[in-house]
């Protein structure tokens, strides 16, 4: 009988392990001074990829990076004053990331500055198949939800462009 729950878990379709951003998040845009709300998936993501230029290095690298992706979702809210969003909004996402399929690879809490930065990945057949970034700052809340095959070496190759850092934490000094 103990094996059953494990088997059931293993049999869970991939989509059931995807996180869902609560629709209540959208009400934050009424309070935010700036909102970014991007959802690109399926045909729209493919269309965006077609318009990326191979001539421009940055666009060419993004094009390669997103080739295995199914969807990208970014919700970012910037507020005029601290404390405009409830912790429960962040917890509603975090609780989904406690599922066995997800592991937290970075989790930093700065109580002094009131900033949390968490990075979660989902592994399927030893490959990263999902990436979630939660960045909760006093005046800004950002959630990034990427579904699909992500090649970490390509991600680290973007280091320095768009501010994407090299994934291996270096022994070298900070460059800025």
């Amino acid at each position: 009988m103990r094996k059953l729950p494990i088997l059931l878990l293993a049999a869970l379709p991939l989509w059931a392990q995807e996180i869902r951003l609560p629709p209540e998040l959208n009400r934050l845009s009424a309070k935010a001074v700036e909102t970014v709300d991007v959802t690109l998936e399926g045909p729209l993501l493919q269309m965006a990829a077609k318009f990326l230029s191979n001539e421009k290095p940055d666009e060419a690298q993004v094009k390669a990076l997103i080739s295995g992706l199914k969807s990208i979702q970014v919700k970012s809210f910037e507020f005029a004053t601290p404390g405009e969003y409830p912790e429960s909004d962040v917890e509603a996402i975090r609780s989904q990331l406690r599922a066995p399929a997800w592991q937290r690879i970075v989790g930093v809490v700065s109580k002094r500055e009131g900033e949390n930065a968490e990075v979660y990945t989902k592994m399927v057949n030893d490959k990263i198949a999902g990436l979630v970034i939660l960045a909760a700052e006093p005046r800004e809340l950002t959630i990034v939800n990427i579904v699909g095959t992500i090649d970490l070496s390509q991600l680290s190759a973007l280091g320095g462009r768009f501010g994407v850092p090299r994934v291996e934490l270096p022994r070298q000094k900070k460059d800025d």
Partner: peptide, 23 residues
């Protein structure tokens, strides 16, 4: 769609950098 994608990648990148800097 391309413009949205670039914005999304920039934000994802900057937040990854934030996490890295914190670590």
């Amino acid at each position: 769609a391309k413009a949205q994608l670039m914005v999304a990648m920039r934000i994802a990148g900057s937040k990854l950098r934030l996490a890295r800097e914190k670590v």
